[in-house]
Amino acid sequence: MSTATSLSTTNRNDLSHLGIIQSEWIKLRSLRSTWWTFAILFVITVGVGIQMSSSTSFAWLDGGLSQTGMQAAGVNAVIIGTDINVLVVSVLGVLVIASEYSTGMIRSTFTTVPQRVPALLAKSLVLAIGTFLVVALAVAITIPISIGLLAGNGIDVRLDDPHYWRAMIGSICYLVLIGLMAFGIGAILRSIAGGIAVALGLVFVAPLALGLVGGSSAPQIWLQNFVALLPFNLGRALTAHPGYADFASPGVPLQRPEGLWVLEPWQGALGLVMWVVVVFTAAIVLLKRRDA
């Protein structure tokens, strides 16, 4: 070790948003946990997609499946892994921020970026971009394989169907938004265990537990409409295909009780964005107020 501090080679630039984003990108990709999580996301998307595509068949159905039903079956086969992947992105989202608190890294982050909020936003941005790229790549690989396998089972998926593509892009955005919401929860709770528990409780357990409610009385309808606004069901709305009823229960017209909401895909997207905005707002308010 020497005592010279070498002033000469140090260039002096101000803190910049681009620099902060680059910093968070280095942080994200320099941890093994990130790559493990991305690998799991990828494998689940492709693996479950292939499995579902090869096992979907309506050969038993008299008169076969309608074209919109086939389109919905095509959508379902590719995005079925999303139901598992929400778990993976929830864990990743919480981990990315809460691990900085559990390790003490956050103090290095906040002494480097004392305004704090730019660091939080940059971190969420690189998480969103990373998740988007991995899931988009996985979906892009799964689509042609899925279409080939389904064709072998007598299901012809046509690619000129805008609803098909909207559902594909919707499923990618859904995972990104769930990851961001979990990130916000992690930022609020600053604990890996607590963050994962709350994120999974909200994303998984709540819709599962409350989803058991049926019926058509006013309070039951009210509760079911509330459940429709939970992230999981908003995701369902975002990734839905109009032919889903034909595919799920072919030949049987769907009966819906009066007053029950059926959300459009864009409403599902809006709802998810609202969840992210609400959680982020709380996280930012607390971030500015609390000691690090």
Partner: peptide, 13 residues
């Protein structure tokens, strides 16, 4: 990588 991440915020080479 820890130092690189910190350095990147200020575009330190």
């Amino acid at each position: 990588n820890h130092l690189r991440a910190l350095a990147a915020t200020h575009r330190i080479r």
